[in-house]
Amino acid sequence: MIEFVIALACAGSAYALLSKDLLHGTIALSATSVLSALLFFMLRAPDVAITEAAVGAGVSTIIFVWAIRETDRKDGR
């Protein structure tokens, strides 16, 4: 079960790096953070899970979406 969730997080991070639209990449990175938070809960680390969920799926996604909004949204290629 743990290996399956780690494999999903790997797939999400690979999609974040390969997508042509930066907004899709940001949502994939946010999904990777949520899967990491789930993984920390399954590995009996509730403090780290709360921190990763609040920081990764909250603040980090907000600043990435702001950066994409102020600059280009396409990768350019």
Partner: peptide, 14 residues
């Protein structure tokens, strides 16, 4: 219980 300064601070920022 699980939580603390950083976690609560980030939720307050949200």
């Amino acid at each position: 219980s699980p939580g603390g300064g950083f976690q609560g601070g980030v939720v307050i920022a949200s």
